[in-house]
Every structure is written in C-alpha cells, then in structure tokens.
Nucleic acid binder design. Structure first.
Ligand SMILES: NC(=O)c1ccc[n+]([C@@H]2O[C@H](COP(=O)([O-])OP(=O)(O)OC[C@H]3O[C@@H](n4cnc5c(N)ncnc54)[C@H](O)[C@@H]3O)[C@@H](O)[C@H]2O)c1
Ligand SMILES: NC(=O)c1ccc[n+]([C@@H]2O[C@H](COP(=O)([O-])OP(=O)(O)OC[C@H]3O[C@@H](n4cnc5c(N)ncnc54)[C@H](O)[C@@H]3O)[C@@H](O)[C@H]2O)c1
Lengths: 223, 223
DNA sequence: ATACATTTGTGCTAAAATACACAATGGAAT
DNA sequence: ATTCCATTGTGTATTTTAGCACAAATGTAT
C-alpha cells in the first residue's frame, strides 16, 4: 500500500531515511513548539528526550539524518530547530484537507481549531445523507458527495479524512483515490485495501484500549 | 510448542513478549471479527496478512508466542482465534472507562456505539465547566470533576480518556493517576509526564498528517 | 494405501533499530 | 591563554525485529 522509503536524504541521493525516524519528527516538533510558546530559546537532546521518554542519543541520531542543527556545548536553538523540522516535514505551509463524513466525529474535527497552526486546514466537508447537506459544521457547510471531485481538484487536495461508517469506508476510500487523494487518515475501524503509493494512517481508539488491557490486572465486568 | 503464555510485565524479565507483538494483536482481532461477521469460518496467515499488509510469517510468529491456534494444511478457525485473542488481550469482558472533557470530541466519543462490542464501556463523563454539567452526552449525563474520584472507585475504573484542552491535560492526568487510573488515552496534543507504571497512549491526527506530508509532493498553500 | 497439496510452527539468518561511548567543538570562567 | 564543562554528531556494538525456508502435520484425491 505504501512503500516505506520514498524520499531521499538531501545530502545523499542513494540513502533513504527510515520511516520510523520520520514518524518521530512530528513528536519532536510538537514538543519544541510548546517550549517555544513558553519562551524557552534553547534546549538540548537530553531535555527533549526527558520530556518525550526517548533517549538523547536517539534524538541526536534522528536529527543527524537531515543536517547539523545543534551547537556543541549549548544544544539547539528552539525556534531554528522548529523551522528546520517544519521544512523537512513540509509543514511550513498550509495543506488543504477534505473531510468525508459529517457525523459526530466529523463535527468535532471540522470545528477543531488546532489544525491551522500546525500546517492543515479543512477546506470542505462532505456527506451523502440529504439531511446533513447544508448544515453547518465549524465554519463550513456540508456539501453533497457529488461535489467532492470538483472540490478536491479546485483546492489541489492530496489529503483526506475518512469519518464515515465502517461499511462505507472502503468504497469512499476508492473514490478518494480515483479523484487524486494521496494520503488518507481513516477513523473507521477497518484496514483499507488501496493501491501502492496511497498512504493510509489509522486512528482507532479501541486498538489502543486493547493494547492497554493486555498489561492491566484483570478486574473488569463479566459479560 | 509452548502452549502457555505469560503476561509481559516490566518485572517479567525472562519470558516477556515484545510490546510490538502485543500491538499487532488488536489489528488481527479486528480483522478476524470482520471475517466472522461475514460468515467466514476458516482463514490462514496468508489471507490475513494480505488483508493487513503484513507478512504471513509475521502473523504466525506473533501468534506462536501464545500457543498453537492453527491446523496445518487448513489454517485458523476464525471464531476460535478471535476468542483466543480476546482472552490474551483480556477483552473477553467489558472494561469500564471514564471520559474527562465533555467538549466536541468528548461528545463524539461518548455517543460512539462501537466500544461495547470490542470490550469497553464509557461509564462516566466529567467536566469542570458549570455550563456543561448536567447536559446529556450519549446516554450519560456530564458530572462535575469533583465526582470523578468516587466514580472511579465505585466502578473500579482503570482506564480513562483525556479529552480536555492541552493546557489542562497534565493536571487532569495527575489527578487521574492519584485516584487509581492505570491507563490513559490522551487526545490532547502533548506528551504527558507521569510516573512509571502508568501507560499512556496518544491520539493526535496532526502527528499523522505531518508524517504523511513528508512523503507528498509539495503543492500546498503558501503562508 | 499412497501420493499430493496446503499450511502451520519454528530454528536460523538477515536487517533494522537502538544504545554506547567518545573525539570534537564551543562557550564560560579564571 | 588556558582550563573546564557541557553537548553535539557519529562510528561501532548490541539488541530487537522481520524474513526465510523447511520439517511436520493434516486433509484430499486417486
Ligand atoms: N464518534 C467517535 O468518537 C468515533 C470513535 C472511534 C471511531 N469512530 C469511527 O469514525 C467513523 C465516524 O463515526 P461517527 O461517530 O461520526 O459516525 P456517524 O454515524 O455519526 O457519522 C457518519 C457520517 O457518515 C455519513 N456517511 C455514511 N455513508 C456515507 C457515504 N457513503 N459517503 C459519505 N458520507 C457517508 C453519514 O451520513 C454520517 O453523517 C465511523 O467509522 C466510526 O466507527 C468514531
Ligand atoms: N475536536 C477534535 O476533533 C480534536 C482533534 C484533535 C485533538 N483534539 C484535542 O482533544 C482535546 C479536546 O478537544 P475538543 O475539541 O473536544 O475541545 P473542547 O474545548 O470542545 O472541549 C474541552 C472540554 O474540556 C473541558 N475542560 C477544560 N478544562 C477542564 C478541566 N480542568 N477538567 C475537566 N474538564 C475540563 C471544557 O469545559 C470542555 O468541555 C483537546 O486537547 C484538543 O486539542 C480535538
């Protein structure tokens, strides 16, 4: 579905940076931006690691894939490292995102104010139920699914949020791919089957719960 | 060969099963339950792997940590493997969960019907804003935060969902730990600092988006 | 009964990820 | 100017994770 290594290291055309490293960068960025908002100007791999529960060596090695951002003896300039990470992740801009499914979850997402200052904006909300269409969610109005292709084309959307019922998810995902979406954040509790080159990430709280319960002392309600 | 399995706690130095293996079991279970609901009685590691984008060997090896569940030449009985995975993950029961934060996201979660048949039930919703208290979310009524400790004790809750604003998240998390919560699913975009032994899992859609954009052709709005 | 087709469970190998440890560097103090 | 200290960036070692490949088991067809 998604090849793990797609982008070359800037300094070496051959080498690829492990996806697991890329996956940690947004965590670093999130923490750095909190430091920045608190007025801290300098940090170091130890401090950042302590905050995140990651070893300092891990952080240094991850960053070293992309360049030298720190100063020996001092650490990292918070604002500078933020900027660099935003550039690496390509979030030094605002990506337009379409949201499909204007149900309970869709409403929460559409009215969420925390996307914009981290690089994303929901530019359209779509549903196939007549009674949903025209209703307001956040600052947007729900549009019919038939408008989705034109909307994606007009806004050059490459990212979609899938917040439809499980039974509709695969079909809607197929449609999204057909009209040019490259990355899907899927909230439906199902693994989608999509062509190579389409990246799908999943959010399913129950997966997290079931992971947690493995480690808990059993003390739950009998069924 | 080892038909017994042990809980992989931190103290369990000898025979602990890698956390990454535990993390895949809920994915297997989710897929198996879909097969089951479609009436399929038998599957095999190849089919399951194809559906999930995981190698068949990986699946067999993961399962082999816990026992022998398959039949050579045939594969796995879907219902039986489901039952076994539910037992291993300790979701052959219903875990009571408390939800803190009755905002947009809290509403979506509280009214979500998909928890119960996968082992979880939200038994209380809490908020500290007077205007939220008493309002209905799903089938529950929002209670004041002051009621939380008694509620957790009464229901023997060990799991909490944290859906409060970022700036309140750490404080509320500290409270949750004090009153006996062992596992937290945190929706606030922040890494919590909590004592050893408390498990926290995070859901932050922006982390997923920023991971995706690394691999996308840059074609987003300039800021 | 025998041959054949499948698929598991697993010992071993390969690859990936993480941790260690330290030379090199920059800044502060004396 | 020199010493001292903190911290980076990275070569190497260790640990963890994934993949390979096949004997053993099971069912089916002849
Ligand atoms: N609500 C939650 O907190 C929550 C939690 C976990 C997972 N989920 C998952 O997220 C998804 C959405 O959940 P929800 O609670 O918002 O459900 P919902 O039923 O409230 O909303 C689903 C929306 O999708 C629309 N829809 C249905 N078929 C469609 C189609 N073919 N094309 C476009 N729109 C379509 C419906 O009209 C509805 O508005 C579900 O898959 C659910 O399992 C939700
Ligand atoms: N809405 C989304 O789709 C979405 C998406 C991503 C992340 N999040 C995150 O999830 C969290 C909740 O988001 P939301 O959109 O529901 O926000 P919200 O503002 O709608 O709701 C937050 C709720 O928490 C309550 N609250 C505040 N302080 C509290 C405290 N100390 N104790 C108890 N309750 C308290 C508020 O009264 C409010 O009801 C936030 O951290 C947000 O960043 C939300």
């Amino acid at each position: 579905m998604t090849s793990k290594y797609e982008r070359a290291n800037a300094s070496d055309g051959q080498s690829r940076i492990p996806d697991i490293v890329i996956g940690r960068l947004p965590i670093y960025l999130r923490s750095l931006k909190i430091l920045l908002s608190q007025g801290q100007t300098v940090t170091n791999s130890q401090e950042l690691g302590d905050r995140l529960g990651i070893s300092s060596a891990q952080i240094r090695k991850d960053l070293s894939h992309f360049g030298e951002f720190g100063k020996q003896g001092t650490g990292y300039d918070v604002a500078y490292l933020c900027k660099q990470l935003e550039k690496i992740l390509q979030v030094d801009c605002i990506w337009p995102v379409v949201l499909v499914g204007a149900g309970n979850l869709g409403h929460a997402l559409a009215s969420y104010a925390g996307f914009e200052n981290r690089g994303f904006r929901i530019v359209g909300v779509f549903d196939n139920q007549p009674d949903k269409i025209g209703t307001h969610v956040g600052s947007l109005q729900v549009e019919p699914l038939t408008q989705l292709p034109a909307h994606v084309a007009r806004h050059h959307c490459r990212i979609a949020i899938l917040a439809v019922p499980t039974k509709a998810a695969q079909n809607v995902a197929n449609l999204l791919v057909e009209i040019g979406i490259k990355s899907i954040l899927c909230y439906a509790p199902i693994t989608l089957n999509l062509p190579e080159g389409i990246r799908v990430e999943y959010i399913d709280p129950v997966i997290h719960f079931q992971h947690m319960t493995y480690y808990l002392e059993k003390d739950c309600l009998k069924t």
